[in-house]
Computed example of a mutant assay.
Amino acid sequence: MKKIVLTGAAGALGHQLRAPLAAMADQLVSTDLADAVEGLAGNETYVKADLGDAAAVMDLLEGAEMVVHFGAIGDEAPFEQILHSNFLGAYNVWNAAQKHGVRRIVYASSIHAMGMYPKTTRIDTKMPHRPDTFYGLSKCFAEDMASMYWDKYGIEAVCLRIYSASGPVGNARALGSWLSYDDLIQLVQRSIDTPITGFTVVYGVSNNDRSPVDNSAASFLGYRPKDNAEDFAEAILAQTPQADPQDKAQMCHGGPFATVPLGESGVAYIKKMSVS
Rank of each mutant, 00 (worst) to 15 (best):
L88E: 11
G89K: 06
G89L: 06
Y91N: 12
Y91W: 13
Y91I: 11
Y91A: 10
Y91C: 14
Y91Q: 10
N92A: 02
N92L: 00
N92T: 00
N92V: 00
V93P: 02
V93A: 03
V93F: 01
W94K: 10
W94E: 06
N95D: 15
A96V: 04
A96I: 01
A97C: 13
A97T: 01
Q98I: 11
Q98D: 12
Q98H: 12
K99W: 07
H100F: 07
H100N: 14
G101D: 10
V102Q: 12
V102Y: 06
R103Q: 14
R103Y: 02
R103H: 12
R103I: 02
R104G: 08
R104L: 11
R104C: 09
R104Q: 10
R104I: 06
R104D: 09
I105T: 10
I105F: 02
I105M: 07
I105A: 07
I105Y: 02
V106K: 00
V106N: 01
Y107H: 09
Y107W: 15
Y107E: 05
Y107A: 08
A108H: 05
A108K: 03
A108I: 09
A108P: 01
S109I: 06
S109T: 10
S109R: 05
S109Q: 09
S110G: 03
I111Q: 10
I111A: 12
H112K: 07
H112C: 11
A113T: 06
A113E: 05
M114V: 13
M114P: 02
M114D: 05
M114W: 00
G115D: 04
G115P: 03
G115A: 02
G115N: 05
M116Q: 10
M116A: 08
M116R: 14
Y117K: 01
Y117V: 02
Y117G: 03
Y117R: 01
P118C: 05
P118I: 03
P118N: 10
K119D: 07
K119Y: 05
K119H: 04
T120F: 07
T120I: 12
T120A: 12
T120D: 11
T121R: 13
T121D: 13
T121K: 14
R122P: 01
I123P: 02
I123W: 05
D124I: 07
D124N: 15
T125L: 07
T125P: 00
T125W: 00
T125V: 14
K126L: 12
K126C: 08
K126T: 12
K126A: 14
K126W: 08
M127I: 14
M127Q: 15
M127V: 10
M127N: 13
M127P: 03
M127L: 14
P128W: 04
P128H: 07
P128Y: 07
H129D: 15
H129W: 08
H129K: 05
H129E: 13
H129G: 15
R130Y: 15
R130W: 08
R130N: 15
R130G: 11
R130L: 11
P131M: 08
D132P: 04
T133Q: 09
T133M: 10
F134H: 13
F134L: 04
L137I: 07
L137Q: 12
L137A: 15
L137D: 05
L137M: 13
L137C: 09
L137P: 01
L137T: 12
L137G: 08
S138A: 11
S138E: 02
S138W: 09
S138P: 03
